[in-house]
Amino acid sequence: MRERVGVAVTGVVFGFSLSRIGFSSWDEVHRMFTFADLRLLFTFMSAVVFLTLAWIAIARLTGATWAPRNLHPGTLAGGALFGIGWALSGACPSIAMVQLGEGQLGAGLTLIGIVAGNWLYSVVHERWFRWSAASCVDA
């Protein structure tokens, strides 16, 4: 039950925030990437700063530690491809859902693409890459 509440509340607040910040607007994201408007960039950077402080505080208070994750072989190439996709579709996986919720139905196509792309990678990895597959979802 606690798990469901945590997941649901996080999802709704995260989605709401992304929408209000403007990450679900293709135009705003484009402006960020072309440095025409730095607001989104500052939002992201300040979030990272706040988080850095938060993790330090949490580590002090709870004694929690996080093991360093090793460099995953597909990191650079995967990141590069993702960036191109983000610039074209205006979305990352979470944003596509938010766009859909806002009534931007084109995001449905983006989502179909995301599912297909993820599946495609899974097959390609099995056939050719075969390096250690780490998921970004912590166990």
Binding site: A67, R69, N70, W131, S132, A134, A139
Partner: peptide, 12 residues
Amino acid sequence: CPHMQGCEMYEI
């Protein structure tokens, strides 16, 4: 083993 890092059993 090249898949040691990130292996839960290895950690155990």
